[in-house]
């Protein structure tokens, strides 16, 4: 666990002279299997948490958690630890801090909230830069932390990701419907006796864990590739809650696999492939929605 290859970001993926010759070759590499398994685990969690995040309009909070993860991971590396606990600690701590800000519905309260979050974000980035500077000869690591190190996932990291995801899914299964209720209609949910504030904080912690997981694969700056894009595309394609969640998971897993396999054959950064795949799925979702909207209007006429 101590020798997580931080600097493996730009590790040159093994080129096959005839890449299409054998998909089996790809699976014979341990690191590829690890990456595929880890990617799937992370995609499932981020697709579900992301679906709620998009619904709750908390993407800004999600982005902040990702940025705060960066100094967490850099600090962990500075202390000679694996980046995993660094991401986890920083993201969850930041989630709790954001949860402590009272959520108000008025414009002024919202403005204060986003100002506080923005301030935390900038300070976190600054700390990250300092830690990197203190840790000499870490320059490649910066890129890894910011833009991902998909191809350097170890087996023990896979196990950690699996355990965290299983725990989060268990919690999400328990909270699922009340969280949906509180996300859509907090007033009515609390009148029905639901602990809306506790649900808000619990969701932020889940979001922190999901962000920490995604960060290990896409880096801090590209977490939205798995956290926003699949969920936002799914919400444009269906307005049924259960279908939307399933679709979000399917898109996230598909995007992850295609990004990873593309990076195996063509050695450019995996984050680029992954994010591009997500981007085009989202674009397609918008076009499909538009087309349907026009058809729908014609029907009602």
């Amino acid at each position: 666990m101590t020798s997580v290859p931080l600097l493996h970001l730009l590790v040159v993926a093994p080129h096959s002279s005839a890449p299409w010759s054998s998909f089996a070759t790809l699976l014979s590499y341990r690191f590829m299997v690890n990456a595929l398994v880890a990617g799937t685990i992370v995609a499932i969690l981020s697709a579900i948490v992301g679906w709620y995040m998009v619904l709750r309009r908390q993407t800004f909070a999600g982005h902040t958690l990702a940025v705060v993860g960066f100094p967490g991971a850099a600090g962990a590396a500075l202390l000679g630890l694996s980046v995993t606990p660094g991401y986890l600690f920083a993201c969850v701590a930041a989630a709790l801090a954001i949860g402590a800000i009272p959520r108000t519905r008025t414009g002024a309260g919202r403005a204060t909230e986003s100002a506080i979050i923005g301030t935390i974000q900038a300070f976190a980035l600054a700390c990250g830069v300092l830690f990197i500077n203190l840790y000499h000869g870490f320059l490649d690591g910066v890129t890894a932390l910011l833009f991902g190190s998909f191809l350097g996932i170890t087996s023990s990291q896979v196990i950690t990701l699996g355990v965290i995801t299983a725990a989060c899914l268990l919690v999400l299964g328990t909270l699922g419907r009340p969280l949906l209720f509180a996300s859509i209609d907090g007033d009515v949910a609390s009148a029905r006796g639901l602990p809306v504030r506790v649900l808000n904080i619990a969701f932020l912690v889940l979001l922190g864990l999901a962000v920490a997981e995604v960060s290990e694969i896409t880096g801090s700056l590209l977490v939205f590739a798995l956290l926003v894009m699949p969920a936002a595309a799914a919400q444009r394609l269906t307005n049924r809650a259960a279908t939307g969640l399933a679709l979000s998971v399917a898109i996230a897993v598909g995007v992850t696999w295609s990004g990873l396999i593309a990076a195996y054959y063509l050695a450019y950064p995996v984050g680029f492939y992954l994010t591009s795949a997500g981007f085009f799925v989202y674009l397609a979702a918008i076009l499909i929605e538009r087309k349907r909207g026009r058809a729908g209007r014609r029907d009602t006429r």
Partner: peptide
């Protein structure tokens, strides 16, 4: 309160929450 125009949840699911939205578990 009117719902945000970009809230992509169908009316049926909104009504369903009145029935099972306060229930924990799957």
């Amino acid at each position: 309160r009117s719902f945000d125009p970009s809230l992509h949840i169908r009316g049926f699911d909104i009504v369903r929450l009145g029935l099972d939205g306060a229930r924990w578990g799957l």
